[in-house]
Design a protein around this nucleic acid. Structure first.
Lengths: 134, 134
DNA sequence: ACATAATGATACTAATATGGTATCATTTAT
DNA sequence: ATAAATGATACCATATTAGTATCATTATGT
């Protein structure tokens, strides 16, 4: 079972490319990036538009336009990207949906799952696009 | 994004029911469990058959037959159930698929993701059906 | 002004995974 | 023999994921 979906993956790669080449403020057109990374162009376009809406990129319309990073690579966190494209990770929810566990509040399992989830999120929060470059 | 799928969830609940009621060796028919837990019968049947194939249950055909646990509840691990129905969790794979990361072996990211994955698996391995009962 | 090259918005389609049914064969208790 | 169960397996329905198409808008260069 894969935890990272394709769009998240593509987003990460595109951001890395931009960060790598990144003289400050350089615009990248979708076709430029798609060509380089061999990602289907219109799909990537949708992805970058999403990143733009979420303020991770800034866009410029018109000839010579494109996208550029709106933050430094060390301020773009993996967990953020995952949440944008896949929503928050929920490890817990299902087991507890119909209170399989009789003593609701202080169930050991719930606590343990919450711990795991917190750990994962916090670790993923510590990874940035910059970390992927070096 | 939900990490636990429905069949895993149902499997857990069914096993819990069996463990809870469990005088040693008691058989449960599919319809009995499905009725109790309000799970669609034929779907649950498929799930229990899978558990039987994986030797978590033993089955008995014919009138009065059914399924029973083939292990003590404290020997049935969550992570095992997840892997049966959903395959191994793979956090890493995707980011590294097309070597987004240039220095292949000693990349910090890879190590970190591996760490996270190991932690999650080991923590899930420490949770058993028995833990869900008390 | 106009052609061109880009993104914005959005609707649509294709492929795959998930959730669930149906059915026939086999086994066992009564 | 019959009824009550599982075994095996093929099928169907729905949801999610992956990707395309298209028209509108905006900016640039001539």
């Amino acid at each position: 079972m894969k935890i990272i979906k394709r769009d998240t993956d593509y987003a990460v790669r595109a951001l890395c490319l931009m960060a790598k080449a990144g003289e400050k403020g350089k615009n990248f057109s979708v076709s430029e990036i798609a060509g380089e990374l061999k990602i289907p162009q219109p799909f990537l376009r949708k992805i970058l538009q999403t990143l733009n809406k979420k303020n991770l990129l800034r866009s410029c319309k018109g000839a010579g336009g494109g996208f550029r990073l709106s933050r430094l690579p060390d301020k773009i966190f993996l967990v953020e990207l995952i949440e944008i494209f896949q929503g928050k990770m929920k490890i817990i929810e299902c087991f507890l949906r119909k209170k399989i566990c009789p003593n609701k509040r202080d169930c050991r399992l719930k606590k343990k799952l919450e711990e795991i989830e917190k750990y994962v999120v916090s670790e993923l929060s510590s990874i940035t696009i910059k970390d992927l470059l070096e």
